[in-house]
């Protein structure tokens, strides 16, 4: 019994680019997330600092959620462009 994919799809010429891009974007987000945790642990008073009528904790927390969504859309856009470029290259070849 094989354990390969359950469906068939075209070869992905943009795979290496997408992997590299994914790692870079992951590292960017991980750094922002780690900073959130480290501020919480080592400088908790910063979390209470006012940002307008809110505080750093609320703005940073909301920011992390919004950043994840924005990065996801940027990643998809760049991956889709790369897949199109790879597709054209294959057609030419």
């Amino acid at each position: 019994m094989s354990h390969g994919p359950a469906t068939e799809w075209k070869e992905d010429g943009a795979s290496a680019y997408k992997t590299r891009l994914g790692v870079i974007m992951f590292l960017v987000y991980a750094a922002v997330y780690a900073a959130f945790i480290l501020i919480g642990v080592f400088a908790p008073s910063w979390m209470r600092a006012d940002v307008g009528s809110l505080n750093v904790a609320i703005v940073y927390g909301f920011g992390l959620i919004v950043l994840a969504v924005v990065l996801a859309f940027v990643y998809n856009h760049l991956c889709t462009l790369a897949e199109r470029r790879a597709g054209k290259k294959e057609e030419i070849l």
């Binding site: 094989s2 354990h3 390969g4 994919p5 359950a6 469906t7 068939e8 799809w9 075209k10 070869e11 992905d12």
Partner: peptide, 8 residues
């Protein structure tokens, strides 16, 4: 992908 897909 393709080698896997064929097997699958």
């Amino acid at each position: 992908a393709e080698a896997e897909a064929v097997a699958a």
